[in-house]
Amino acid sequence: MQLTTDRSNRGAAREEARRRKSRRGAGVSAISSVVVIGGLIALVVSSKGWPAVQETFFSWAAFKDSFPEVLRGFWLDVKLFICVEIVVLVLGLVIALCRITSAAALYPIRLLAIVYTDLFRGVPTILVIYLIGFGLPALELSGVPTSPVLLGGLALALSYSAYVAEVYRAGIDSIHPSQKASALSLGLTNTQSLRLVILPQAVRRVVPPLLNDFISLQKDVALVSVLGPLEAFRVAQISASSNFNYTPLIAAAVLYLCVTVPLARVLDRMQARRGQLDGVGTVR
């Protein structure tokens, strides 16, 4: 076998080969993306119904017309999911803690927490929104809010807290019992070892699944529209039916993507980093 390089510059040669390979890789992926995506677009655009679809779904004029209004509606969505996320973070933790209490005197609380999570995880979110949005005001209790935004937010918070509580609980369960033994051996109380040792580790571990739940919450705020508030989807719907053009719905979809995609990328990066750490770190 003949060597094309002598020992002294084999490092440089290897580097050059690697660069060539990655350049070739980038070229191949660019070309194949263009071919696949271009092919799909061509397929859609050349279909018989495309001119009609383009007019009703992708009309630039209709997009420009409706966008400001849809955006204003979307601002309500943003405010709503931020508030609901904060409530869910706290309420979910409280419910998780209720579920893990072992004190006999607190048995009813544990039972309630179990019933709560079963109930709100088992019923479709849209049904919860209907029942709370229309049922709660019908009781005509004094002090119960009647604003559909508040009621919708409440329904979402109740529904998502049930999921998030389970996420927290799984995180707490995943902390090895030796950590608790270690905390107790230092003379910490049960509550202190939970607060200072178990929870900080558990919460760190469940950040990715929590973000995942938040991605679905950020689009589920659109469900509140069934109660009537003018959020992005509802605005788009109204605009669409009054102009017989569905483009405003596309505008709304773009706006939802603007908040869910960045969060998905943050989540990807977090998991990639964690994967690296797990690969290097010792497993105990």
């Binding site: 030796s178 950590q179 033994a181 270690s182 905390a183 051996s185 040792v197 105990r284």
Partner: peptide, 8 residues
């Protein structure tokens, strides 16, 4: 403890 059990 045998396995150290430090708080990571």
């Amino acid at each position: 403890f045998q396995a150290f059990n430090l708080f990571p």
